[in-house]
Design a protein around this nucleic acid. Structure first.
Lengths: 192, 192
DNA sequence: CCGTTTGCCTAAGATCTTTAGGTATGTACA
DNA sequence: TGTACATACCTAAAGATCTTAGGCAAACGG
């Protein structure tokens, strides 16, 4: 009966920690209840469902990454900004693999998700301010940056780079250098 | 009692189809048994566990993609090969979203998984034959290609490009053009 | 035709999700 | 200070999934 003080926010934060410890898809309402020393059904006053819990963790993770990203691009431009923002994603994924997996969770386009998604686009757009790109090149470049950041980090975290050298950490700065070169020589006119 | 003729292979194929229909993480031993009109426990003679089933579907998907990739790069070089291989991944993901999700499934580094992973590296390496890159640039470029292919396709499939224009299909060829430009101007020396 | 293999079965325990309704705790107000 | 209300957490229960153990009968080899 002792009241534990559950709230949606505390459950979400604890769920995120749990995700980092045991993996996002091992996070369950049951496991979370166990962690709080509380009956499973009690959580359903605070989260609507297992899906709701997972969605909240996803939005939390996306928000945390966006916060770090904003901090990283502030006062930086061009190549420095590119490297800083890229580092945010990679470091976050390595520090918080469960949360990073959560950020991939397919959350229905309701409010929070779309808005935090836009924050991430804006971060890439801010980096591109240092490279003069018109439209549609700018949007294309935003998507390329997002693809490389997410793709590289996913593959590395998934172990795809484990069975060859150099290490993922060695390639990373050179890949970013290459991206920097590309952004400075973006083909605005049809190259064919 | 009528024997249905279950085998690990048939279960895996049916599981892959099911994944495309209802989503990879909705694929369960139970759902598969239902589809075969068979008791759940019967499947356990053919697959070791739910995890085993999912892993088999993952390896199947990776293998199918590698087959298509090999077909695509055969007889093509440079930019043509790049566009063809990239199209393989994107088209496969759009035709078979469940299988594509399966290919991301974290499968422990046992035999088949590592080997099929290497096939994918080799495809990128084949594309790079058209661009003269030494080491470590070549490995870096392989990783960049993998990152862009996987990242772009994941983000597009996840709906990240839905709320802005141009469409994901419009950006795609221009992103590939940019990649082609980058591969032809890869910074082999430290650019700083 | 018989024996062996094995494919699919029933049965059962464990875990997770979710809903319905009850109890007691903390708060607000007289 | 006592009482009434809101609600935080509870018990109970049904349904789904995963997994193991052991049984029956169909297919196959001799």
């Amino acid at each position: 009966m002792a009241r534990v003080g559950l709230t949606p926010e505390r459950l979400t934060r604890a769920g995120a920690e749990l995700a980092d410890e045991i993996g996002f898809d091992q996070v369950s309402v049951s496991a979370l209840a166990r962690r709080f020393g509380v009956q499973v059904a009690s959580l359903y006053s605070h989260v609507k469902s297992s899906h709701d819990l997972h969605s909240r963790i996803a939005v939390l993770a996306l928000g945390e990454m966006a916060d770090r990203g904003a901090e990283a691009v502030a006062g930086r431009a061009g190549r420095d900004a590119l490297i800083a923002l890229a580092g945010v994603y990679r470091d976050y994924a390595r520090e918080h693999p469960g949360r990073y997996a959560a950020a991939q969770y397919r959350v229905e386009p309701g409010s929070a998700a779309v808005e935090v998604g836009r924050r991430h686009s804006e971060l890439s757009r801010a980096v591109l301010r240092g490279y003069e790109l018109g439209e549609p090149a700018q949007t294309d470049a935003i998507r390329l940056l997002g693809s490389v950041f997410h793709g590289y980090v996913s593959l590395e975290l998934g172990g795809s780079f484990d069975h060859s050298s150099p290490s993922g950490s060695d390639s990373w700065p050179r890949v970013l250098d290459a991206l920097d070169v590309l952004l400075r020589n973006w083909p605005e006119r049809q190259p064919q």
